[in-house]
């Protein structure tokens, strides 16, 4: 089944969140495109060394950023990963991390379209 485009990125909701300020929308899209690779690297590193606190923090921040961008799937999957890390279920983290990466891979091209 094809992913729901609104779940990947709800542009109308993002428009409402930013109060119709195109400059603000561009700025946060640019920030997300800059920060996201570092956050994913931090999560991968934290899973590799079993650092639950670092994984919780990185997943929590990505979850918050995705929530403001109205990227529902990335938000949900970051929340799942954060939940694994917070509860110390690091054995479940690699699967949750891969699901998150897949969602991010779907989101980034949509954000790049917006930033053009």
């Amino acid at each position: 089944m094809a992913p729901d485009p609104l779940a990947i990125l709800d542009v109308a909701a993002l428009e409402r969140q930013t109060g119709g300020d195109a400059g603000l929308r561009s700025e946060i899209v640019r920030m997300f495109l800059e920060d996201c690779p570092q956050r994913l690297d931090a999560m991968g590193g934290a899973i590799a060394v079993g650092d639950a606190a670092a994984l919780t923090s990185a997943a929590h921040t990505l979850k918050g950023s995705a929530a403001y961008l109205k990227a529902a799937t990335v938000r949900e999957r970051a929340a799942e990963l954060e939940g694994c890390a917070r509860e110390g279920k690091l054995a479940d983290a690699p699967v949750a991390f891969n699901r998150l990466r897949e969602a991010v891979d779907e989101l980034l091209p949509e954000l790049q379209k917006l930033s053009r």
């Binding site: 109060g19 946060i28 918050g64």
Partner: peptide
């Protein structure tokens, strides 16, 4: 106060508007 710069930017800019 927010360590996530995206969250801080959206909130601060909305308040400045």
């Amino acid at each position: 106060a927010d360590d996530d710069r995206i969250a801080a930017t959206v909130l601060a800019q909305t308040l400045r508007q």
